[in-house]
Design a protein around this nucleic acid. Structure first.
Lengths: 202, 202, 202, 202
DNA sequence: GATTAACCGAGACGGTACGTCACGTCTTTAA
DNA sequence: TTAAAGACGTGACGTACCGTCTCGGTTAATC
């Protein structure tokens, strides 16, 4: 989730200044808040992160936080976003290699937060918060799109039959990762990703 | 999770009676608490379930609850357990039928709690509570065992190769269900389970 | 006891304004709390006064109360203070008259709270709470000072010998009142005060 | 307060045994409870004395305590009683000496419990508990009776006028002690008792 | 000897109040 | 107008005691 109602002068061109009146928003507040949030996340997890503590660490008023994010969780999601470089879509000319490269990257990402309460907490919170649900969905959709892109290239290359059920294949590849991460706790390693990929593409 | 410090004569033999001293626990309190919890769960979800309200509805002191469960979530898990008949392991002499029967039952179970915050909440809470984690794992393991049993029969019948990677197949079948339920929100229906099963068993 | 951390410009000079930052304390909350406390005191005494009930009656959060007073008892003392006009120091030009006037006023004050648990409760609580002890002492000292002032004027007028043991006389006059009020329960009436005063000043 | 419903064969004579049926009360339980109470009183005062802790220390069930005393405070009063030898009535043939001897003894008794919350707590509790009030009154009356006896002897010896207001004198002597003990905290020492006695008897 | 009744220690019971914490909002003064 | 500060009302938390009530077991006096 992006900051709410960002000043969004954004676009390159001229934009004769939106003529915002009053004191301008502190430019560095977003950064201060997000990095304080990351620090706290690492220390106490989402469950232990209190907005009072966060505001104090960021040297910011609580209202400033609520002016920019609608909830703790959407802020957390943003914080993670800033700290996370997107996983690139591999394109090595070979379906199996691409899938393995991508799933290995996924594993690494999960591994970093192993034992963390972040994703579980966000999923739980998204039950009550539509904005958060939407933001979380963005990430989910992005991962699906990447996987689907890889699979699509496989079809183009004839590595998969043209009528392959891509929607299903995507879920079959990604589902087991999240299942293990969230529920079984079974190890997510390179061996697992290879066996999974080989199963899916025969 | 079973109530804390269950009488647990447990061990096989006769066990020379633990000779429980003091006033015994009210036998019907567990039931009263659990059914009040189920009622509240249906009304307000896990997030809205307060221990004060629960104690009042169950006609019980708060201490009585905390004496029997270590946390709200382990209680919730217990409540769900009492309200849930286990999904039987189908055995229709045919791998595909068995898998579809089982996954359809899973879907129905998910569907019953659609939009519910229960599973997400339990997963999140299990990050902080080892007992809860263990209890939740029981359920997870039970589903895996059932699936594995179905697949094992398939091997016996020659419907799967004898060296099939059962661990992986189990995750490939169950993973996508939880992935959709927890993350994508995509529909879980009979069509999905058939496509998934057909993919997995060729 | 005054509210904790009172704005307390206090000091003599101009004090360059403490420049209190943040939202100021609700000005009327003290009054609302104190008058709700008085109402509850009259209904249920100190022992029956619960902070939850008090907060609700005052239309205030519990935290707001705890922000301003350290304990129920110091709050009670404050409440009584606001509801109590100080007993004026009589000055009728005659020692006996002054003492009787003052002791009669004391009796009336005691009588108002007859059967009340307020003073006993405050004395007991002051064993654990130094702030409360100090506040309670203020009242005690004020009564002693008034009595001593009356006696001092008596010395000036020659009604008492110049070397009279004022400290002792003060305790001899006030002690029996509290002794009866707290311990014996014997009546505190005008007759008693006259006999006491006559004994003390011969 | 004596133990509730004491077997109370009491009266000297015959009393052909009340023929109590059932198991007799444990003879040593009273002692165990009282001494545990004294120990706890010294450690944490009346306010910090919990019945659970007391029962545990005495190696006794809570019901056993409540069978013998109606309240924590009456038990405390009893405990103090057992630990306290009564102050003897001095009779040295001289009013001043007798009073000073007695008041010095009183001071010593107060001094032992200096800073203690016992008397304040008992006074406060007696506002709600009539039994306790009565028990506490016994002590108060006993002190008054002793003082009055000393003064009466003084009248007999002609050291006080025959029409002296004994009720008042008693309160004038005892009142200041309790006033200082409970309210002012001023020192209670031999000097104080001498000055007080000399003031009262001229 | 069997029965009965009151006691015993242990500890669970329904309650009530506690003081703390975090929430998201509101209200100041300052920039 | 936004900022930092921090007080606000709300409401849940888990704990600590209260005084009562079972339990399974004694320990007498009565039958």
């Amino acid at each position: 989730m992006s900051p709410v109602a960002a000043t969004a002068a954004s676009a390159v061109g001229d934009a004769p200044v939106p003529a915002r009146r009053g004191r301008p928003r502190r430019a560095d507040a977003d950064g201060a808040i997000l990095s304080a949030a990351l620090q706290l996340l690492a220390e106490v997890g989402v469950g232990g992160l209190s907005m009072d503590e966060l505001a104090q660490r960021a040297g910011v008023g609580k209202a400033t936080i609520y002016r920019r994010w609608t909830s703790k969780e959407s802020l957390v999601l943003d914080a993670l976003h800033t700290a996370t470089t997107p996983i690139p879509t591999p394109d090595e000319g070979d379906l199996r290699s691409d899938l393995i490269t991508y799933t290995d990257a996924l594993i690494e990402r999960f591994g970093a937060g192993r034992g963390s309460d972040v994703l579980p907490h966000l999923i739980a919170a998204s039950c009550y918060d539509d904005h958060l649900r939407a933001s979380l969905d963005e990430y989910t959709r992005a991962r699906q799109a990447t996987t689907r892109l890889i699979l699509g290239r496989g079809i183009e290359r004839g590595e998969l039959p043209p009528d392959a059920d891509l929607d299903l294949l995507v879920d079959v590849i990604l589902g087991p990762f999240f299942y293990r991460h969230l529920l079984t706790g079974d190890p997510l390693d390179r061996d697992f990703s290879r066996r999974l990929v080989d199963l899916v593409i025969h």
